[in-house]
């Protein structure tokens, strides 16, 4: 089977069965490895991407249902052209092992799209499904506040 996805503004063709989750279509089918596999059961958030602006666990979305506009970490910004969230992440030196951070950043992107100036409670509510074994939570929180300020200032 072949499916056409819209990923980071480009149309991409994937030759995999329709029940393969979007996560694996991205990673194995399209070699876009920025989106991470952590648990396979929507319990860790490492595979978070945006579909039509909303954060979803890509390990739970069958390829056949991934019809919307998909944004992955690669589409948010790039090393030479960081998105404000990524800039804030770098400024606060958030990552340790870094493996969960793609998912954390995509979840935070969805949060800031809905609530441009989140409180700590908003951050707790939005981010509690994203696990980090290195314990970078305090810096993630600081970086989200920072990004909110940066984006407000334009």
């Amino acid at each position: 089977m072949s499916f056409t996805l819209s990923v980071n503004g480009a149309r991409r063709q994937v030759d995999l069965p329709g029940d393969v989750p979007l996560l694996w279509a991205l990673r194995d089918g399209l070699a876009m490895t920025g989106t991470k596999f952590g648990c396979g059961v929507a319990a860790c958030g490492a595979c978070t991407v945006l579909i039509d602006g909303e954060a979803v666990r890509s390990c739970q979305v069958p390829l056949a249902d991934a019809g919307g506009e998909i944004t992955t970490i690669e589409g948010l910004g790039q090393p030479g052209a960081l998105a404000p969230l990524q800039e804030a992440w770098v400024k606060h030196q958030v990552a340790q092992c870094g493996y969960c951070q793609s998912g954390q950043i995509m979840q935070a992107a969805s949060l800031l799209a809905q609530i441009p100036d989140p409180t700590d409670q908003d951050i707790d509510d939005a981010m509690q499904g994203n696990l980090c074994r290195c314990g970078t939570y305090p810096r993630i929180r600081a970086a989200i506040h920072e990004a909110a300020t940066m984006m407000k200032a334009g």
């Binding site: 490895t33 989106t35 790039q78 960081l82 990552a95 870094g98 951070q101």
Partner: peptide, 10 residues
């Protein structure tokens, strides 16, 4: 390793 880990390029 920070920029790579914040952009999915690591």
């Amino acid at each position: 390793d920070m920029v790579g880990k914040c952009t999915g390029t690591e």
